[in-house]
Each structure stands twice: as C-alpha cells, then as structure tokens.
Computed example of a mutant assay.
Amino acid sequence: MDRLEAMMRLVNETGIARLDITEGDTRIRLTGASPAAAAAAVVAAPASEPEAAPSDVAVAAILSGTVYLAPAPDADPFVAPGDRVEAGQTVALVEAMKTLTPVTAPRAGTIARRLVEDGQPVEAGQPLFALGAPTA
C-alpha cells in the first residue's frame, strides 16, 4: 500500500496523465488529477469492473480510450439509468487519438445501470452500461 501511495503522489506531483504498471496478474492504472476531478483509479486483474446482471446486456466500449457520457462538457448526458434506448442510439463517446467514436446500444432496452464515470479511461470490451429488457 505504501508503494501504491508513493506512485499516486508521483503522478499527482509530476502532472503525468497516466501511468500503467503490470506485475504478474496485477495491473495498476493511475490517472493524474485534473482541476475538475480526479485521482487514481486502481484496476486489479482479473478485471474487477462492475458487470451487468445475467439478464442484462452490457453496452461495451468498442475501443480503448477515454469515455465521455455527454456530447459536450456542459451538455446533459446521452442517457441515464431508467432511460429507454433504441438499437443503434448513441449512449456515449470514446476518444482515442483525438478521434471521438460513438458507442451505440446493441438493441432496444432500458439503461439499468451506468458502470463508468465521465472522463474515465476504458479498455476495449469494457462494460459501460447495463442494458435491461425493453419496457412497454
């Protein structure tokens, strides 16, 4: 834990945007703090991200990058838990290499849960939302 805290201080004090460390089956990703938000995100492998319930379908990131839940910083999010979505509807954006790529719902349904935070780094295939059954 002391080593992790030292790495977190290093990231925050030097302004490093992101630091990835892998040792055996443990993977640690630290992201630098921004004035608006943040700190370090620690991810242990095997991945311990929240997962969709068995009856839900996961809306997953299609590539690795930074997820944005709204079309602009001051805009409302694309979707929120409880919202009904149609197949192909944009639910988030992933930025990679200065390119914004839409993430779309694979089918109609209701957003059951949001599994990520706005501005969070994500990996390809990582669940972003749990999509429940369509509602009448």
Rank of each mutant, 00 (worst) to 15 (best):
M1Q: 12
M1K: 13
D2T: 14
L4Q: 03
E5A: 08
E5K: 12
A6H: 04
A6F: 03
A6C: 03
M8T: 11
R9W: 04
L10Y: 13
L10H: 10
V11W: 03
V11N: 00
N12V: 11
E13R: 02
T14I: 06
T14K: 03
G15H: 00
I16S: 07
A17V: 07
A17Y: 14
L19Y: 14
L19T: 03
L19Q: 10
D20F: 14
I21Y: 06
I21H: 11
E23G: 01
G24D: 04
G24W: 12
G24H: 05
G24S: 06
D25E: 12
T26R: 09
T26S: 03
T26F: 01
R27D: 01
R29N: 06
R29S: 09
L30Y: 02
L30K: 00
T31A: 11
A33E: 13
S34V: 15
P35R: 04
A36G: 14
A36L: 14
A38K: 09
A38M: 07
A40R: 12
A40L: 08
A41Q: 07
A41E: 06
V43F: 06
P46T: 14
P46Q: 12
P46Y: 10
S48G: 13
S48L: 12
E49F: 06
E49C: 06
E49L: 11
E51R: 11
A52E: 12
A52T: 12
A53S: 15
P54F: 07
S55V: 08
V57N: 00
V57E: 04
V59F: 08
V59P: 02
A61Y: 12
A61I: 08
S64H: 08
T66C: 08
V67Q: 03
V67N: 05
Y68D: 00
A70I: 06
A72E: 10
P73C: 05
P73M: 10
P73H: 08
P73Q: 13
P73A: 10
A75C: 07
D76G: 07
P77M: 05
P77Q: 09
F78M: 08
V79C: 05
A80T: 13
A80E: 12
A80S: 11
P81N: 15
P81Y: 05
G82T: 06
D83R: 15
D83G: 02
R84C: 15
E86C: 02
A87V: 11
Q89T: 10
Q89I: 12
Q89W: 09
T90L: 13
E95G: 08
A96T: 07
A96K: 04
M97V: 13
K98D: 06
T101A: 09
P102W: 13
P102L: 04
V103T: 05
T104A: 05
T104G: 02
A105D: 02
A105V: 07
A105M: 07
P106H: 04
P106Y: 00
G109F: 05
T110E: 04
T110F: 08
T110L: 09
T110H: 01
I111E: 00
A112P: 06
R114Y: 06
R114V: 15
L115Y: 02
G119S: 03
P121L: 15
V122L: 08
V122Q: 01
V122M: 13
V122R: 01
A124V: 13
